[in-house]
Amino acid sequence: MSVALRRALLAVVGLVFLLPIVAMVEFTLRSPSGTGYGLDHWAAILDPERERSYRNLFEGVGNSLTLAVLTAALVLVLLVPTMVLVSLRYPRLMRVLEFVCIVPITVPAIVLVVGLAPVYGVVVRVAGGGTWTLALAYGVTVLPFAFRALQTDLSASNLGTLTEAARTLGASWPRVLTTVIVPTLRRGILAATFITVAVVLGEYTIASLLNRVNLQTALVQVSRSDPYAAVIFALLALLFAFTLLLLIGRVGTARAAGVPTAAPADPAASASALAAAAPPPSPTTSSKAAR
């Protein structure tokens, strides 16, 4: 493929991604009077007098961030040791684990919710109806992304030999985990964390159907009364997801350049998962922005 053709393709793809974002930015900059542009809508979000209007939105942001942290912790605490254990001790079970972890991506969210509804009946009785309990459901939905991110690093690193080398050098299992396994899988762990955060920030269906407030449900709600605020928050969420993507890329590049790893960088896998998980503008807000 020639350089010119490559650049042309890149430009077309860039435009496809850029146009809706530019349209959203343009929408948020429209003056309330209907003529000209200004930062009035952006300033209004920070206006203390209008705090009540956006209370639900800020609550949604807070809930989503809490859920992101909880889900990431849940996934890492459960998935990393499991994958390491399976990889080192029971490599034949990796296929089974992969199947189990990938299954959630094949189940539509609505079906997942139908299954989760009775489960949450029990969860509410045991742990209360706090929004944080959504982290349990999100832990399942992010499994495919987190698994892939970790699997890339795991399969490319010679973890078995590294672990054995550490053992012969006098490291106990806890020290092997902290001084060898986690640093070796650092890139995969970071990618899994970032992707988890992005997926959780973009989740709408489960929260809506289980009647919880998170960023996306709050966006839809606020878009009915203030579409500008909804688009602004959607843009900020996109920016946040984009920053995470850049961070993943930087981690990969840093490793390739200075801090080595046996794992080749796999930005494509991370990027595609992150792009898929990035919170899109809700249907309501995007349609209004396009008008």
Partner: peptide
């Protein structure tokens, strides 16, 4: 066990 071991595959810690 106080043994030192060198492996067939490269086993230096990459980080």
């Amino acid at each position: 066990r106080d043994v030192g071991m060198v492996f067939q595959s490269y086993s230096l810690f990459p980080h």
